[in-house]
Structures are given as C-alpha cells and as structure tokens.
C-alpha cells in the first residue's frame, strides 16, 4: 500500500458570501472517507465572504477549512498559485465557488484518477452524462464556436477546454501553472493545452454545469476578443 492520498480543494472566491457556505457543506456531504482540506482564496471581497468563512472554520475546524486571503482582487490565475502554495495534499482540486461545479462529482474525479493513474482529471460538459443548464442561445453559440475553433486549430485531445473543474497531481499543477500567463477563460485553456503538450496523462469525467444562482459573474467585457487572442497565443507558443 502506498501512503494515503490527501486532496487539497482550492476555491477562489470574490463576493461569494451566499455560495461559499453551501459549497463547503456539499463538499463535506459528498467526500466521506477521504482526507481533504478546503483552501479558500478570497480577494478581499467587500460582501463579507471572509466572515462567513470564519464561521465555517468554527463549525468544521481550521484544519479542514483554510482561509488564505489576499488584500485585493488580483485575478483568478494568481489565486490558484496562491492557494497552491498552502496546499498540503498530494492532489489538488480546483473548483468555482458559485455552485456551477457541484461537489457531488468529486468522488468520480477521485475514482477516475485512482483507476487510471492520470495526472489530470478534467470535468467535461460535452459528453454523455454531462450538460449545461441556464444558458441562452447566444451563450451556447459562442461556447460551441469557441470549442470548434479550438479543436480544429489546437488538437488538444480533450473535449471541454474552458471548464475549470479539475483534479491535478500537485506536482503536475505546479509544473503547468508556472508556464501559464493568460487570464480568464484562456487561462483554463492554456493550462490544459500545455499539460497535453507536455505529455501528461489526462482523463475526463462528465459533469453538469448549472449557471450560477447567487451573485454575479466576474468575467466579462470583450471576452470573445480575448479568447481569439488567446488562441493565437497558444498556436505560436505551444
């Protein structure tokens, strides 16, 4: 028997006061016989997210819930790096706090990893058993267009490039994240494309994605332009 696995779940938050306690509850509900810790990287949310996290620490214990805040909103990519520094597990899970990533899928990520020995298990919405709820036609169209474009140009070998619900071996995440520079959606794509180019073993599990119920989206603005720039960037650098 090898030594026991520990899973560090990194959850970046910005104004997720209503969601964070729900997600923590659901993680505890679905991860029973597993050693894990939840690392919450909060970027100084003005809505009091951190107060709720402190209450949760009282309830669940500070060894299970780690609050690793930063003073101001510095972006998602660096939030992962920040959380990773404090991770004590040999596996790291990255998920959003907004309940689009349901903790009930965590066991299937872990199971898939144990079965295949994969370095990365990534959640995909675009296979049997997966799906999305709450997107309008425009959102579906852009998502599909972006996906077809990326599949044709980059041959990444995974079906869902911009999803960010993933499990990594810690060493692999450290390796891949250090070479990524993009932001926003492109960051998720860059991570998986670079990992695939480096020859890491990547597996997929189906997940469903329900658009956020509480709070508001933080990615916005000229997303399509950023995406196209990111695509070109990945073409010439990977």
């Amino acid at each position: 028997m090898e030594e026991k696995n520990k899973y560090s779940i990194i959850v970046p938050t910005y104004n997720e006061r209503l969601n964070i306690s729900l997600i923590v509850y659901l993680i505890f509900k679905h991860l029973r016989d597993v050693d894990f810790e939840i690392i919450i990287v909060d970027d100084g949310s003005p809505d009091g997210t951190q107060e709720v996290v402190k209450q949760l620490q009282q309830l669940y214990g500070e060894d299970h819930i780690l609050l690793r805040p930063r003073a101001k909103k510095l972006g998602l990519g660096t939030a992962y790096i920040h959380g990773l520094k404090h991770a004590s597990g040999n596996f790291v899970v990255i998920m959003d706090a907004d309940l689009s990533h349901h903790p009930k899928y965590l066991p299937s990520f872990i199971k898939k990893q144990l079965e295949t020995g994969a370095s990365i298990v990534t959640g995909t919405r675009y296979v049997n058993g997966g799906g999305v709820h709450g997107w309008n036609l425009m959102r579906k169209l852009t998502s599909r267009g972006a996906n077809v474009l990326a599949q044709t140009l980059l041959w990444p070998g995974v079906s869902d490039l911009t999803g960010s619900f993933r499990l990594y071996k810690k060493s692999v995440l450290e390796d891949v994240i250090s070479s990524c520079v993009s932001k926003g959606y492109v960051f998720q794509m860059e991570m998986i494309v670079r990992a695939s180019r480096k020859g890491y073993h990547i597996e997929e599990v189906p997940i469903t994605f329900v658009d956020r119920v509480f709070g508001s989206s933080k990615l916005g603005g000229s997303e399509i332009v950023e995406y196209l720039k990111g695509l070109v960037y990945l073409l010439v650098t990977t």
Binding site: V132, H133, K140, N147
Partner: peptide
C-alpha cells in the same frame, strides 16, 4: 455544420437545476 449540430444537440440538464435547489 459542427457549430450548428453542436448548438442543436447541446447537452442540457434541467433536472440538475432542481436537484441543486434541493441541495441548497
């Protein structure tokens, strides 16, 4: 064609939204 088919057959999961409400 790929985009068209993709949008038409976009995998949806309305039941998941209900389950999520219960979980919440």
């Amino acid at each position: 064609l790929m985009v068209g088919v993709g949008v038409m057959c976009f995998p949806i999961c309305p039941e998941e939204a209900l389950l999520l409400q219960q979980d919440i």
